[in-house]
Nucleic acid binder design. Structure first.
Lengths: 211, 211
DNA sequence: TTTTATACGGAACGTTGTTCCGTTTATCAA
DNA sequence: TTGATAAACGGAACAACGTTCCGTATAAAA
C-alpha cells in the first residue's frame, strides 16, 4: 500500500534521508519484536495474542503497534523475513557443497520453510488484502535462488535441464500440502526426495521423457 | 465427541426416545439459525460474528449457544448441510437428464459447492480438532453420489470406466483451489469442463491412455 | 388449568486487536 | 557537557468478539 515502511527488508542502515537518524532503541525494539513474533508464531501459532509477543520482546503493546500498525503487518514481516532467510541459504549452501548436493540440501531447507509456513498459509488464503503482496514476494525471492542452484547443477551434469524453477517451487509446496488426508510431514519429505531423484535421473544423458 | 447431538442430519422426527418430544419452538429456532448462518457465512464470510447470525435468525445469543454450543458447531452444521444438499442433488439431476448430461451437470453443481466452501476450507486446515470429522463426512456422502452417476454414465457408454470417484472429487477440488495465483473462478470452471470432456473422450471406444 | 421440564433472551464476563496519551529518552545544537 | 525537543515508550482504556449465566417465558404433559 503505502511506502512508509522503513527498512522492511532488514536493512542495516538506520538513516532517514531528510530527518534525524532512527533512534537506536527503536531499531533494537523492532528487531526484538520480529524475533519474538517468529518464536511465538512457531510455538503458539499465528493466532497467538499480540500481548504475548510484546511481552516476549520486553516491550509494551504501544511499542509493538508503533512498529507494526496492524497484527497482519507483523505476520507479513515474519513471513518475508523467513523467505529471505530461505533464499539466502541458497548461496551459503552452494558455497559449501557440490552443485547436485547443494540443490538437494536446499530443497529440504525449502521443505522446512514450507512446513513452518503451514500455519501462515491459512491466513494468506483468508482473503485479507494485507497478504496480497506475499505470493509475489515469495516468487521473486525464491525463484532466482532456486534457478541459480538449478543452473549450476545442470551445468555440472548432475541434473536434467528441462525443469522450471517456478513449477518446482509450487509442486513442492503442494507436496507439503496437508490436503493429502492422512499423510504426515514425513510423507512430504519422501515425495520431495523422490522429486529430487527424478531431477537427477536425466542428468548427463539426455534420456527420459522430455515434456 | 459426545453423541447427544440430536438429529444433526436434518431428520424430521423430533421425538426423543425416552424423554418428552422436542419443543416445537426449539426445532423452529434451530432451523432458523442454520439458515441464517448459511446466509451470513455466504455474505460476510465464516468470520462473521455470532451475534449477526442470532439477529438474522431473530433469536438471542443464548438460544444460539443452546443449539450450537460452540461457534465451530455452527460452521460444521452448515458444511454438513451443504454437503447433503450437494449429494442429494445427484439423484434429482439423474432423474431429469441422461446419464452423461447428468454427470456433467452435477459436476458444475459440485464446483459451485466447492467455491462456496472456499471460505470454510481455510478454517478446516486450521488444525482445530472440531473440524476433524469433516473430510470423512465429505467423502462418505459425496463419493457414493458421484459413483452412482459415473456408473450410470459408464453403462450408457457416455463415459470411460477407468476413473475413481474419490480421485475425481479431490482433483476437482484442487482445480478450484485458489493457489493457482491469478486464475479466477472461471478458470476453475474451464478446467473442470475440460476434465469432463476428458471423461467423455474414452466413452464407447476403449482408446486413450489407460493409466 | 396447573405443573414442570425446557427453551428463551440478553446482560455480563474474559480475551482479543487497537487506540490514546502522559511519561521517558536518544539525539542534536549550543 | 548540557539543555531542548522530536521521537519512542508503556500500559491503561476502548470496542468487538466468543462464551457463560440466570431470571423469565412457554410448550407439553397431567
Amino acid at each position: 500500500m503505502d511506502d512508509k515502511s522503513q527498512e522492511r527488508g532488514g536493512g542495516l542502515e538506520p538513516v532517514n534521508s531528510t530527518d534525524r537518524r532512527v533512534r537506536a532503541d527503536a531499531q533494537r525494539n523492532s528487531n526484538a519484536l520480529l524475533e519474538a513474533a517468529m518464536a511465538v508464531f512457531a510455538t503458539s501459532g499465528v493466532d497467538a495474542p499480540v500481548r504475548e509477543i510484546a511481552d516476549k520482546a520486553g516491550v509494551g503493546v504501544g511499542t509493538l503497534y508503533r512498529h507494526f500498525p496492524q497484527r497482519s503487518d507483523l505476520i507479513v514481516a515474519v513471513f518475508r523475513n523467513e523467505v529471505d532467510a530461505c533464499a539466502n541459504a541458497a548461496s551459503v549452501i552452494a558455497a559449501e557443497y557440490g552443485p547436485g548436493e547443494a540443490l538437494a540440501r536446499w530443497m529440504q531447507r525449502y521443505v522446512d520453510f514450507i512446513a513452518a509456513k503451514r500455519g501462515l498459509a491459512a491466513a494468506f488464503s483468508s482473503g485479507d488484502p494485507a497478504y496480497e503482496s506475499l505470493p509475489l514476494y515469495f516468487l521473486e525471492k525464491l525463484r532466482p535462488a532456486l534457478q541459480t542452484l538449478l543452473d549450476a547443477a545442470t551445468e555440472a551434469g548432475d541434473v536434467r535441464a528441462d525443469v522450471d524453477a517456478k513449477e518446482l517451487l509450487f509442486a513442492i509446496a503442494r507436496l507439503c500440502s496437508p490436503d493429502h488426508y492422512g499423510g504426515g510431514p514425513e510423507q512430504a519429505r519422501r515425495m520431495v526426495g523422490l522429486l529430487v531423484d527424478g531431477l537427477r535421473y536425466g542428468g548427463a544423458p539426455s534420456v527420459g521423457p522430455k515434456i
